[in-house]
Design a protein around this nucleic acid. Structure first.
Lengths: 260, 260
DNA sequence: CGTTGCGTTGAATAAGGTCAAATAGAGTGG
DNA sequence: CCACTCTATTTGACCTTATTCAACGCAACG
């Protein structure tokens, strides 16, 4: 029901090194989606081996992004979307006044960069919060593939649509929930996504700072910190810096249904 | 630079009446995108007349939605996206606890229902805030058209992507702005969109209630009401119920750049 | 005209934010 | 490996903003 937790990074065979911008490394690898440990999350089901082969031609490049580096920056030219193989990203937008708003956190098997399709320029910045590796999907090729293979066409549209639905969920969170509900929802969401990837559903390492969590949740970092402490006092979780253990998942769920 | 303001509803020739759910009327019309007054907003540029003809085959139906009725409801089966010909909608999602969050307001030339692609079920509800008329675009057909005509393929992806970018903007609004900034941004956004449609940039009729504005902006209705009053006291706008006139657009803009 | 929903306004309150200080870690260079 | 720095986190005290509760006015409509 979920991907194996194996963190192997085997099967990655550099073939044609390419010079890349700044400290980020881009390489051509022999891509084997079939053996990728996030394939269930990345590829639609029911593809013929031939379909997968077509897809592998689109995913002709991998890219490593080190912690702290950006995969793409708002305003830069859009050329590709990225499938996360490993690692963890924050995605954020900055407005005219320099305010940063974190719009999401992304992990293995998720797609990044779809915001750039519309304007030809990325509207958000994706920053690696830990060393990461992504598959580069040049969008023009992806679009061509979508034109010729129905399954990929469907899949592409589904992915784009899901992103819209996800965003609506965040709006709900920001617009209608109180601070503690937001944090509870955030933790449960993370736990769910980690679980799906084969990690522990009850304990994990936060890759982002309190400030980044706060930005995402529309709260100040001090508020986030206080909430963590309160949750801990209430026996819902235990926190030590970035290490979080969920002690009472039902209790967190219950916070979401509280008649405040 | 913008569509004509002509509010003609001519060229709409009912051909084959169809029975429709509840009080909503669905009819087959002879569709003429070429003469539609929101065509600049709805169709990509640089299409051949033949492309437009293909598109008109997809848009084979129009639908009228009366004020207060829903075009589609969250949870109902997804079958089509809708292009708004005229009228005004609110789009909202409801969570498990029954909380409603308005995720957007849509007007002529905009597309609705793309949230349904991913799951086969609409995730949001679109409610007409004034009598409206929409073009029904059965998604399966649209997808086929996208497969065969490059311009539509691009266009579809652009529309989906723009929706994501728009949503990021709303997140910024909800997550990083203070109440008065939110309302200022909201009014300026409405003004811009009305302007683009040929209406007055400085005065308009709000179709939604204070509560709906509040839901969208993450504020309580009383707060919205107070802000309207304050903006009026400060000479930024004049409000009388749903009628709003912007007196000092620059002043509103300035609120967004305030170093609070 | 009474009803009903929507909008406005006031007063009190609570939720978060701001400012400030102390602490804890992580990373770095010697 | 240790000392030093720098950043992230926690916590307290206080303050501001927006919410809550409540009353009242207005306009549309049967």
């Amino acid at each position: 029901m979920h991907a194996t937790a194996t963190k192997t990074s085997a099967r990655i065979i550099p073939i044609e090194p390419r010079s890349a911008a700044s400290t980020t490394t881009a390489r051509k690898f022999e891509v084997k989606c079939a053996s990728c440990n996030v394939r269930e999350l990345c590829l639609p089901e029911g593809l013929t081996p031939q379909d997968v082969a077509s897809f592998e031609e689109v995913v002709y490049t991998r890219k490593r992004v080190k912690r702290g580096e950006t995969l793409f920056a708002a305003g830069s030219n859009f050329g590709a979307v990225y499938a996360i193989r490993s690692g963890f990203f924050k995605v954020s937008v900055v407005d005219g006044e320099g305010r940063e708003q974190v719009t999401g956190f992304s992990m293995g098997g998720e797609l990044l960069g779809m915001d750039g399709i519309g304007s030809g320029t990325y509207s958000a910045t994706a920053t690696a919060l830990e060393d990461a590796e992504v598959c580069v999907l040049p969008f023009a090729r992806l679009e061509d593939l979508a034109a010729s293979v129905r399954a990929f066409r469907r899949s592409l549209h589904i992915v784009l649509s899901r992103e819209i639905v996800r965003d609506h969920g965040v709006m709900m969170l920001l617009g209608s929930m109180r601070a503690e509900e937001r944090l509870a929802a955030f933790l449960l969401n993370l736990a769910k996504r980690f679980t799906r990837r084969g990690y522990s559903p009850s304990e994990f390492h936060l890759r982002m700072t309190r400030e980044e969590i706060g930005s995402y949740l529309g709260l100040k970092l001090e508020t986030v910190s206080r909430l963590f402490s309160r949750f801990q006092d209430n026996g819902l979780i235990s926190v030590q810096q970035k290490y979080v253990r969920i002690l009472n998942s039902d209790g967190l769920e219950a916070m979401l249904s509280t008649v405040h």
